[in-house]
Design a protein around this nucleic acid. Structure first.
Length: 295
DNA sequence: TCCCAGGGGCATC
DNA sequence: GATGCCCATGGG
């Protein structure tokens, strides 16, 4: 059992809410106030349960295996963005007339990341220009078809498919999962780049400059501005990214009356310029607000 | 039927 | 660099 002290301004119930949206993400399950998923410990999948107990998060193995506690702490910290003091973000929000309500409504909501960069990029490609519910269905088919799995109590749990596996798949095999021809090509290409070691989270991170990371990512076929920014937000934990053109951001800003009309990039930039250093957080709070009715 | 969805590539000028 | 078109499924 690993225990992690919860930081201030962290709401585990908000995290669970995010993970348990109606969207049916194949990578984890939320049950009875806990989240379950596979954790890869030196190539060995361990099923873990994360729950809340007083001031702590508790992480325990449920398939009777153990795990590297230090690596686990790092992983959870990264996944739930626990090691960040987000008070400055709330100060900025409260100074903004239209957006101030977000600070109170979603207090303690932190970015739920996707630590695996390859998974993030594939997920972006899958979700391009289709509705999210359908995108999650396609992701589920991809993972259930090509991902490593374990069975526990007659229930299957999956790891995201490896680049070495996906690069070998024929376009027709991927199309059968209801990816388009183009997306199948993109995913194969990204898998190849990762499998060859030409790109990795470590390599990208080592560039140490967000704009440089973006320009490197955009060179890859299938990765445009939106995806590059999203990947930096979710996987590299960059704090100043905005996937411009995103329909969710536009819709939220419009609904909150923060911008007068949709799809005006200059107006959106003006709003985000007031959140220097916290643009990524504003994006997530705006997306969060789009699903208020689901909460 | 029409429009849009957490886009991106490409041709064209 | 801006614009228009294509990809192609599913939900409202």
């Amino acid at each position: 059992l690993t225990r992690i002290r919860k930081p201030d301004n962290f709401s585990f119930s908000e995290t669970l809410w995010f993970l348990d949206r109606e969207l049916d993400d194949v990578m984890h399950k939320v049950r009875d106030g806990a989240v379950y998923r596979l954790f890869e410990d030196d190539g060995r999948p361990v099923l873990i349960k994360i729950s809340e107990n007083g001031d702590f998060l508790e992480i325990e193995p449920v398939n009777s295996k153990t795990f590297d506690e230090k690596k686990m702490s790092v992983f959870i910290n990264e996944w739930f963005d626990l090691s960040r003091d987000i008070r400055p973000f709330y100060h900025l929000l409260l100074k903004d007339k239209e957006l101030a309500p977000l600070a109170k409504k979603y207090r303690g909501f932190r970015i739920v990341g996707i630590p695996d960069l390859f998974e993030t990029l594939c997920w972006c490609v899958i979700g391009q220009q289709i509705n999210l519910a359908f995108a999650y269905q396609v992701k589920r088919r991809l993972v259930e078809t090509f991902g490593q799995s374990i069975t526990h109590n007659r229930e299957k749990w999956y790891l995201f498919p490896k680049p070495s596996v996906l690069r070998e798949k024929k376009v027709e095999e991927l199309r059968a999962l209801k990816l388009t021809t183009r997306k199948a090509e993109y995913i194969r290409g990204i898998a190849e780049i990762f499998d060859e070691g030409l790109l990795s989270k470590e390599k990208l991170s080592a560039l140490d400059d967000e704009e440089l990371m973006i320009s490197e990512l955009i060179k890859i076929r299938g990765i445009g501005e939106w995806t590059a920014n999203y990947a930096l937000m979710k996987s590299l934990r960059a704090m100043n990214r905005v996937p411009f053109g995103d329909s969710g951001i536009n819709g939220a800003l419009l609904r909150l009356k923060s911008i007068p009309k949709k799809n005006n990039r200059r107006q959106v930039e003006e709003v985000f310029d007031r959140f220097e250093g916290w643009k990524t957080y504003l994006v997530f709070y705006l997306w969060r607000s789009n699903r208020e009715k689901m909460a």
